[in-house]
Design a protein around this nucleic acid. Structure first.
Length: 109
DNA sequence: ACAGTGACTACAT
DNA sequence: AATGTAGCCACTG
């Protein structure tokens, strides 16, 4: 298992997401300089469950605010529960007020 | 070294 | 406006 540098870059960004905020894969990819590598961000998250320190992957969703990756969590509902624990409302696998909670690493950093 | 894969996004019809 | 298709790049076998 070789952790690519790209993966570590992704983990670093995701760990910077503030409590109660969320972001999208594309935003992270763009922050890394490869706006078209959004899928790579997803692959990185796929490995994130073995990465330390733990990565708040539940704060990362697709650009529509849907919890597309919830199936990859230990339990499918854990992602929604984690978000709700941060005060984020999740309805039908979609984050409510996503536009308001969106955290853009490019602008915030 | 080649081809397949994927937690996405943007463009086209 | 909604659905379908294609591009995209790094990783794995």
């Amino acid at each position: 298992m070789v952790a690519g540098d790209f993966y570590n870059q992704v983990y670093e960004i995701v760990r910077l997401i503030p409590f109660g905020r969320v972001t999208s894969y594309g935003a992270i990819a763009k922050a890394l300089g490869s706006g078209k590598s959004s899928r790579l961000v997803g692959l990185a998250m796929n490995h994130s469950h073995n990465v330390l320190p733990q990565v708040p992957a539940h704060r990362v969703v697709n650009r529509n605010g849907f919890l597309t990756g919830k199936h990859h969590f230990t339990d499918e509902k854990s992602m929604q529960q984690l978000l709700e624990a941060e005060g984020i409302q999740v309805l039908d696998d979609q984050i409510q007020d996503f536009n308001r909670l969106f955290w853009d690493p490019l602008k915030e950093l």
